[in-house]
């Protein structure tokens, strides 16, 4: 039986292995994903993003518990950074959520960014697809701790949650572009701390300045204390509201279409790059280009144009 067939059969080890094949970019994983694709598209995907130390993992732990209370199956994809020097990583998100490890209704997978800069790993969407095919009702994706500009989660999740904490900056931070524009739901976590009220107010003011979307969703600012589970039920109800809104307004269809287009474009880009790069490496052109660049007899722009002129697509 292929890995994909075993995944559909409920084999946990096969699912875990396939996720690794995907992450390690094994060619065989593509074939398995083809088999799984018709079985995807059912899970509700929630993205959790925010700065390091905002309490994302603890919040994910509580969200998992809340959905388990409703008897839903939950998958978690948790992303932590890869060392740019050694290529190694310490994936520590599980520390906060490992109490769910031996619950058969929960599957948690940690991924390292492996050089990707948008807050996710390249494999995130495909790993989520495997969980979707496993029959997970809800998939929670936790990004790396982000700064201001890592917004890939938006094109991956149905509902994007931006987690903030008190004391990270004044209201000018709140009107800048970037992650504060992408939230469908905002959370001020550690709400027992000084300044929580003010942070929530500044976020609300920022959101009120925004022109209402044509599709009519207005992001709310929720307050939580992840470590004590305060505000979690309200938060999950807000997810329900957003999910209902997505379905009823037709925004869901738009989201799915944008995502399909992005997955296609990303896959095409990767495949084209890999095939051109391996062809020019194999026939020596790549070495010639590097030599040319070294003695400045060519420039990167002409070199690329020359390679493209020799390909079948131009």
């Amino acid at each position: 039986m292929s890995l994909a067939e075993r995944v559909l059969d409920g084999d946990i080890r096969a699912a875990a292995r396939l996720m690794r094949d995907i992450d390690d970019r094994f060619k065989s994983a593509v074939e398995e994903l083809k088999t799984l694709y018709p079985h995807t598209g059912n899970a509700y995907i929630i993205g959790i993003t925010g700065p390091p130390g905002a309490g994302k993992s603890t919040l994910v732990d509580q969200i998992v518990a809340a959905y388990r209370k409703r008897d839903l199956l939950v998958g978690v994809v948790a992303i932590d950074p890869t060392s740019p020097f050694s290529g190694g990583a310490i994936l520590g998100d599980r520390i906060r959520m490992n109490r769910h490890a031996d619950d058969a209704g929960v599957f948690i997978r940690s991924l390292a960014t492996r050089g990707a800069l948008g807050g996710l790993s390249r494999s995130t969407m495909d790993v989520a697809n495997v969980m979707d095919a496993m029959g997970m009702d809800v998939i929670v994706i936790e990004t790396v701790g982000v700064g201001q500009d890592e917004v890939d989660i938006v094109s991956t999740a149905h509902t994007t949650v931006v987690v903030m904490v008190p004391g990270l900056g004044d209201d000018i931070q709140a009107i800048k572009a970037g992650i504060l524009e992408i939230g469908d739901v905002f959370v001020v976590n550690k709400a027992d701390r000084d300044g929580a009220e003010r942070t929530a107010r500044e976020l609300t003011t920022m959101l009120e300045m925004k022109h209402p979307d044509d599709d009519g969703w207005f992001p709310r600012v929720m307050k939580t204390e992840g470590s004590r589970g305060v505000g979690i039920e309200e938060l999950v109800e807000e997810f329900d509201a957003h999910r209902t809104y997505l379905k009823e307004s037709g925004a869901l269809q738009r989201l799915i279409e944008e995502r399909n287009a992005k997955v296609f474009a990303d896959t095409l880009r990767d495949e084209l790059f890999d095939s051109v790069m391996s062809a020019i490496s194999a026939n020596g052109t790549y070495q010639e280009i590097l030599t040319g660049l070294r003695d400045r007899s060519t420039d990167p722009y002409s070199a690329v144009q020359k390679v493209m002129a020799g390909s079948a697509f131009t």
Binding site: R13, G88, I90, G92, I95, N98, D102, I108
Partner: peptide, 27 residues
């Protein structure tokens, strides 16, 4: 980490069952 491995750190107070489930899920 410095040797280039990906380390899944599960922290303190783990039961043998939790450790094995995590090991399997993380492959």
């Amino acid at each position: 980490r410095d040797a280039g491995f990906e380390v899944i750190y599960t922290g303190l107070h783990q039961t043998p069952e939790q450790i094995v489930s995590a090991a399997i899920q993380e492959d």
